[in-house]
Design a protein around this nucleic acid. Structure first.
Length: 942
RNA sequence: GCCGGGAUGGUGGAAUAGGUAGACACGCAAGACUUAAAAUCUUGUGGGAGCAAUCCCGUGCGGGUUCGAUUCCCGCUCCUGGUACCA
């Protein structure tokens, strides 16, 4: 009875204290509703204000829902968006969904449920989760790439690409119609345009004589999107194309079916036409140097020469690309890619058996495998010989899998003396190694970029650059080659043999592609009975009824492939500006107002994919004149991935007994993943553990100091490892403001880091302390109108200064620290002055918007804190008259001296020499050297 | 393989025009309050030696430059992102 009474009594106290304390649940719900009702974050063009476009990489809405890793970047961009708004900017901060993709399709294959339905469900869940975090998103701008109203314009952009070619004289994309009129007038002889390598020269008369089919075939060689044969990983058993990731040692990862490299007609995007502009554009944008470097390397511009080798006793010729034509007298063999048609053609009868067997094995190895495996050297002699045009020598032609078909011409001239891979190959097969650059061959091959050319006929005794110029002159004179710029980057394959993607607005007439009419957009994804390829290997759209296009000439089959995931994500940042426009992909005036994205935050894993494609499409849209910017993302930050942190319990083998981490070595145990959500600070909650799974209900424990300590490990966040942390759970326990601040407090945004909640209590305590500054110990709101003291102003302005610097450098973690310091100092000062607490609320509002809104309204404001102005930093409050000089002796700190900052160097030296500790170290001698940096340090060398 | 990134106390991290290594926070320990626990508050906390003053060691490893290096240079090790059909 006594006990019951006590419990009732303490409950009452708790209730009272809840009334008084920081009630984040109520506050957050209240302000989220307020923002939604008042459309606080609605952004429309306003010529009176400077604009700021803060963008996140939109998520793919997966079935697993949002985990704590997703919001990391969103929180950072939200903080910047809110900060910029306080600084007077008109801020566009939208969110949407990249909702086409493979996981939804895979799920549809397994369950038969339409991907649109699961995608819709996932989006609903994502939106709910995002709203709980209190982002300043303008939800009226939401886009979804799988929405026909959206992909209508993805298809429209595809059509513009089909109707364009890249003119090298204008250095931009031009309409294909203007190319046709040039062909009609003068043929293609003087047309300088990016086109297929094998494009023949024709006159205007030839053009007129071409059939409709021939004309279309010719134009396809120029269009910016075109059909071409490309090599893919084909899995016949699954009836589908696989990515390199899905292929392991020649077999599909899923099912273990054999995979072959197969040539297939696919749509491609002529991104290589933009290679140089993509390279130059990097100079204009404010991105981190490593990301730029990755793009530069991806584009991989190399300057060199193309050389044609004749084949002995054959009409075939072999074109090679080399960056080192100066070493051409050192060529001792040619090497061809296994999948090259030439390889097969050049095999002689006596080499047939061995060479063909080699090709069969080699060409089915994935490119990734072939590139990473440098230890196994393999190849086969074709039996044929090529003739070096520089010296007439006969050299062997080999097939080697270190040569990739996709780069250059798929053939290399091998110079073993000056290239490592060629050297290893020649050594292995006993081929000649001929040195043509002065230097020592002691350590094998050497590139010899600075050395003198030797043993090289007419280019001997020259240095690299001059030798190259002379060699290229020779090639061009003889018509057997030319100087050439080669890019490592390949044209981007644009079709996928999948269901859940945008249909291509293309139909086929006599085997040639034609665009459907613009008025028929969007070409809506048809219904199918199954999301699998057809029995005869056609893509899933082959299952659709009436997948045809009707014109006045009849009914024609539509393209059955769909677009890749990157299609919709390559232009979504424009659509946010004007998401409901159904006459244009974006209104030009709106696009001009918002311009480029001012800050783009997303993972560095997109460095070469999405970011390159988006830049490509933006440049193309710029060429069309429909937008005025040619670089979409002015500034970018790449946030690091949040990794999972798994917890383990240790079960004694054969028993239902678990041993705490420190004692596990005394028993024969096996580690078992345990749900991280029932572990706090690496301590297992025993009751929750027993309730976790039925088989654990009667589990027993061997504890340390009455506690069960869990082991931990950093792994990828995944369901099967029970280390997925859902932001909803964190919000339920601590609130969104704590989640937001904690994610930032965790470490530098760019850094990869494992998620753990071990420090979250500290951030929660900080918010409660902040709240308490505005309240009496009994929980009544109370601020004083007294003028703030010097110490209070100093505490505040230190934080203002730090916040401003941190926003500039994107050091979000240190801002939280500086807020903590500020609140700790103000708490110690028992400060409750309005002159401090008002600016403080504004200061923290980008990080913790809900509590800031609540405090702001308690302070008497009837408008949102987002309407406030960021407090102005005043240096005068931080000015110090003294500095505590560290005195270092031989590089080690030995003493401290508090001296006025006004002292000159000799005066500081005098003070330092007079110091007792310094005297002790000097032992009466004079220092050898004295270094004094005013305001920083005193260093004596003895 | 190639192209990027990273490594600092028991833990997350702070500090780079080269100038006091370990801010802030977690954890831990001791104390206060409490019948008790939780919560809260106070103090301490890189490692080692010492009663202490103090000294030695210390930013992944091995070298170098410098009065002074977490920071710059050279050579490694390990972890990690991308590598073209995951998004």
């Amino acid at each position: 009875m006594n006990f019951l009474f006590l419990q009732a009594f303490s409950l009452k106290i708790i209730n009272n204290s809840i009334m008084a304390e920081y009630n984040f649940r109520e506050i957050e719900k209240k302000w989220q509703a307020y923002w939604e009702k008042n459309q606080t974050y609605l952004a429309e063009p306003n010529p009176d204000k400077p604009k700021f476009y803060s963008l996140d990489m939109f998520p793919y809405p997966s079935g697993a829902g949002l985990h704590v890793g997703h919001p990391l970047g969103y929180i950072a961009s939200d903080i910047i968006a809110r900060f910029k708004r306080l600084k007077g900017f008109n801020v566009l901060h939208p969110m949407g969904y990249d909702s086409f993709g493979l996981p939804a399709e895979q799920y549809a294959i397994q369950t038969g449920q339409h991907p649109a339905i699961t995608t819709e469900q996932n989006i609903t869940r994502y939106t709910e989760q995002l709203k709980n975090i209190g982002f300043a998103f303008d939800w009226s701008k939401e886009v979804r790439t799988s929405d026909p109203a959206y992909y209508k314009w993805t298809q429209w952009i595809f059509m513009q690409l089909f109707n364009s070619y890249y003119d090298q004289e204008a250095d931009k994309a031009l309409s294909i119609d203007s190319l046709i009129s040039r062909f009609e007038k003068e043929g293609n002889k003087n047309v300088k345009a990016i086109c297929d390598d094998e494009t023949p020269i024709f006159s205007h008369l030839d053009w007129k004589a071409f059939s409709e089919k021939e004309k279309q075939e010719m134009l396809l060689k120029y269009r910016l999107t075109f059909l071409a044969e490309t090599t893919v990983n084909w899995c016949a058993a699954l009836g589908t194309v696989l990515s390199n990731d899905e292929v392991k040692d020649g077999f599909s990862e899923r099912g273990g079916h054999p995979v072959e490299r197969k040539k297939m007609m696919q749509w491609s995007m002529r991104i290589t036409a933009y290679a140089d502009r993509l390279l130059q554009g990097l100079e204009k944008v404010d991105w981190s140097e490593p990301i730029k470097e990755m793009q530069r390397n991806w584009i991989g511009k190399s300057i060199g020469a193309e050389v044609t080798f004749e084949v002995k006793d054959s009409s075939e010729t072999i074109k090679v690309f080399t960056t080192r034509v100066d070493t051409i007298f050192g060529v001792t063999y040619l090497a061809l890619a296994p999948e090259s048609d030439l390889s097969a053609a050049l095999i002689t009868e006596d080499q047939r058996a061995s060479a063909e067997a080699y090709i069969e094995v080699a060409k089915n190895r994935s490119e990734r495998e072939r590139m990473s495996d440098v230890k196994t050297i393999s190849g086969a002699f074709t039996g044929s010989y090529a003739i070096n045009p520089f010296n007439g020598e006969e050299i062997q032609i080999w097939v080697a899998d270190y040569v990739l078909a996709g780069y250059g011409t798929g053939a290399v001239m091998a110079v073993p003396a000056h290239d490592e891979r060629d050297y290893n190959f020649a050594k292995h097969f006993g081929l000649e190694i001929r040195q043509v650059i002065e230097g020592s061959m002691e350590n094998g091959s050497f590139p010899g970029k600075g050395g003198l050319i030797i043993n090289s006929g007419f280019i001997s005794n020259l240095y690299m650059k001059d030798a190259m110029i002379k060699a290229i002159e020779f090639l061009e004179e003889k018509g057997i080659g030319k100087g050439k710029i080669q890019y490592r980057m390949r044209d981007a394959i644009f079709t996928r043999q999948r269901y859940w993607g945008e249909p291509l607005p293309v139909y086929f007439k006599e085997g040639l592609p034609y665009l459907i009419e613009e008025k028929d957009l969007p070409l809506v994804l048809p219904e199918v009975d199954k999301y699998l390829p057809t029995e005869d290997g056609a893509p899933p759209l082959g299952r659709a009824k009436n997948w045809t296009y009707k014109t006045s000439e009849g009914e024609f089959p539509l393209e059955m492939s769909t677009m890749p995931g990157w299609a919709g994500s390559s232009w979504y940042f424009f659509r946010y500006m004007d998401p409901k426009n159904d006459t244009e992909f974006v209104d030009k005036a709106k696009a001009d107002y918002w311009g480029a994205v001012d800050l783009y935050i997303g993972g560095s894993e997109h460095a070469t994919g999405h970011l390159l494609y988006s830049r490509f499409w933006t440049k193309f849209l710029f060429d069309l004149g429909v937008v005025s910017i040619d670089e979409p993302f002015q500034k970018m930050i790449n946030q690091g991935m949040i990794q999972g942190r798994s917890n383990f319990v240790y079960r004694i083998k054969g028993e239902n007994k678990f041993v705490s981490l420190g004692l596990k070595d005394n028993y024969d145990t096996s580690a078992m993943h345990v749900d991280v959500n029932i572990v706090h600070n690496d301590q297992l909650n025993l009751d929750k553990f027993k309730a976790w799974r039925p088989d654990l209900a009667d589990a027993e424990f061997i504890l340390e100091d009455g506690k069960y300590h869990c082991g931990s490990e950093v792994e990828k966040m995944s369901k099967s490892k029970y280390n997925v942390v859902n932001p909803d759970d964190i919000i339920e326990r601590y609130g969104a403001d704590t989640l937001r601040s904690y994610e930032m407090f965790l470490g530098p945004l760019e850094q990869f880091k494992p998620w753990n909640t071990n420090g979250i209590d500290g951030v929660f305590k900080f918010l409660r302390k902040l709240w308490n500054l505005y309240h009496t110990p009994t929980g009544e709101f109370q601020v004083s109108d007294e003028a703030p003291s010097k110490a209070e102003l100093k505490a505040l302005h230190k934080a203002i200064k730090k916040m401003e610097e941190d926003m500039e450098n994107h050091s979000f973690n240190t801002s939280v620290s500086s807020f903590m310091i500020c609140v700790n100092e103000l708490t110690a000062l028992k400060s409750n002055k309005r002159g401090i607490l008002e600016p403080l609320a504004v200061l923290v509002s980008p990080y913790a918007p809900h509590i800031a809104e609540e405090l702001w309204s308690l302070l008497g404001y009837s408008t949102s804190i987002t309407e406030a102005t960021f407090p102005e930093f005043k240096e005068e409050y931080l000015v110090e008259s003294n500095f505590e000089y560290p005195v270092m002796i031989n590089g080690k700190m030995r003493a401290k001296l508090n001296l006025p900052l006004s002292l000159s160097v000799p005066e500081i030296e005098k003070e330092a020499m007079a110091d007792e500790t310094v005297q002790k170290w000097l032992e009466g001698k004079a220092p050898k050297k004295v270094i004094i940096v005013p305001g920083k340090i005193v260093n004596l060398v003895i």
